[in-house]
């Protein structure tokens, strides 16, 4: 066989091998995206129902389940390529606000959506190409406060692209008019809450370090309680603070220890807003995040990531007593193939 023929045969063989593997890959039954529970949850004002997101192949639908666990009910299913996340109940429990998320050309977008908790009827409250990340009702149920990012970019070469230039906005639910409450263009804002008296907003932000900020709605004055506790990291890496129904306590997630690989282990901490003293209340030795208070009992639902710092998260929901003595996993059955 001549050298030329050898080359032709070898290159043809390689092309056939590649095309064969490519076609096998195209026809293989590969999941298109993340499947599993979402990170955030909401508890109805009567403490009966838990609402959460569940992802099917990368798209999150909203489900409801009794707070003790059991079979979930599909509440809202988005069109392909979009997700419904970050639900929050109205004070009377009749409405649920959530965020519709999607991406176009690697740019994420988020719009406000409102849904009847019983009817399941949905309506979009904002439209266009906004980047709204979360929303909560005011205590009187007449308005929504929401976080909106101005840009999605990396602020430095060693940072990932993220939403930035955050501000708080308010929407009047009678007129649907929107006003901007803050003018901070904050690097980061999350975990928005309104105090029970409706006079202050609480949120987490990053200003040199992670902070919980209380902002007066009357004069925009801010206070930033710094929890007093033993932290396993050099500085608090505080996330997902949640305000109790009486407005006297905050539960947040922070570094409690490190595992054998040096990965931080986040647990739930309770801070008393009278003296800012905080104590650890969970002991999962895993990643605890997004606590949500029950409204009428000393209990919480927390999200535990069983695969923290890995390629994909694996979230579970656990009920935890406020004194940290009890913790119980919520067993939820997601109905197969159900469509609205």
């Amino acid at each position: 066989m001549t050298l030329k023929m050898k080359n032709i045969l070898f290159i043809s063989g390689m092309l056939i091998l590649f095309l064969l593997l490519w076609s096998v890959t195209l026809f293989a039954d590969v999941p298109k995206g993340f499947t599993g529970y979402g990170e955030t949850t909401a508890i109805s004002p009567d403490d009966e129902t838990l609402v959460f997101s569940y992802y099917h192949d990368g798209d999150a639908s909203l489900y409801a389940v009794p707070v003790d666990g059991g079979e979930a009910t599909l509440l809202a299913q988005p069109e392909e390529g979009t997700s419904y996340v970050n639900p929050a109940f109205s004070p009377d429990g009749d409405m649920i606000v959530f965020i519709k998320q999607w991406q176009e050309e690697e740019q994420p977008y988020g719009e406000l959506m409102l849904m009847g908790a019983a009817s399941g009827e949905k309506r979009a409250l904002t439209s266009g190409y906004n980047l709204i990340t979360e929303a909560v009702f005011s205590p009187d149920g007449g308005s929504l406060y929401f976080l909106q990012a101005g840009v999605f970019q990396n602020y430095s070469d060693i940072a990932r692209e993220r939403p930035h230039d955050f501000d708080i906005h308010r929407m009047d639910l009678h007129t649907y008019e929107t006003e901007q409450v803050t003018n901070k263009k904050a690097y980061d804002m999350s975990s928005l809450a309104v105090t029970p008296d409706g006079e202050e907003l609480m949120y987490r932000s990053y200003e040199d370090s992670d902070r919980i900020i209380f902002m007066s709605m009357e004069n925009n004055r801010e206070t930033s309680p710094v929890p007093i506790f033993d932290v396993a990291s050099e500085a608090p890496i505080l996330s997902s603070p949640a305000l109790s129904s009486d407005g006297e306590q905050v539960i947040f997630s922070d570094v409690a220890s490190k595992d054998e690989n040096g990965t931080f282990i986040y647990e739930g901490f309770r801070m008393d807003l009278d003296n800012y003293e905080a104590e650890q209340i969970t002991n999962f030795q895993e990643h605890v995040t997004e606590p949500v208070f029950f409204h009428h009992s000393d209990r919480l639902i927390v999200t535990v990531d069983k695969q923290f710092a890995q390629r994909e998260s694996d979230y579970q929901y656990w009920e935890v007593s406020l004194d940290g003595t009890e913790q119980r996993r919520l067993h939820i059955e997601i109905p197969e193939g159900e469509e609205l």
Binding site: N154, D157, I158, A159, R160, E161
Partner: peptide, 11 residues
């Protein structure tokens, strides 16, 4: 380090 912090970019 770059990929870890920023993901893929021209950098």
């Amino acid at each position: 380090g770059l990929l870890l912090f920023t993901g893929w970019s021209m950098m």
